[in-house]
Amino acid sequence: MELLIAIIIGVLTACGVYLSLRGRTFPVVLGLTFLSYAVNLFLLIMGRLTVGAPPIISDTAANYADPLPQALVLTAIVISFGMTAFVIILSLKAFLEMGNDQVDGKHKP
């Protein structure tokens, strides 16, 4: 399980880094989204992997999951969601104003 999650985070980050270095806005936005997915997963498992354990106090539970990373990741998701929406609109605006979707606004020959 740890290995699987680690690989997923690694792949997501690698894709995110590669895509956000591209020259057109759409791959860059996708890359930023991948990066935020990776970091959200990363934050979530920083409370360690626990299966079937409640995050709040209960009489029957033997052990607990760490609730704080869940709260953190919720905040991070909301923020990255808002940011993604903003950057999509901004890219569209840039496309309409500059007439192409290059990040630097210049046509490739």
Binding site: G16, S20, T25, V28, L32, L35, S36, A38, V39, I79, S80, M83, F86, V87, L90, S91, K93, A94, E97, M98, V103, D104, G105
Partner: peptide, 17 residues
Amino acid sequence: KTKAGLHFVIINLVGST
């Protein structure tokens, strides 16, 4: 402004990550 803004937003999003 849009062009400069786009760069500013993208680099800061990477920074947030």
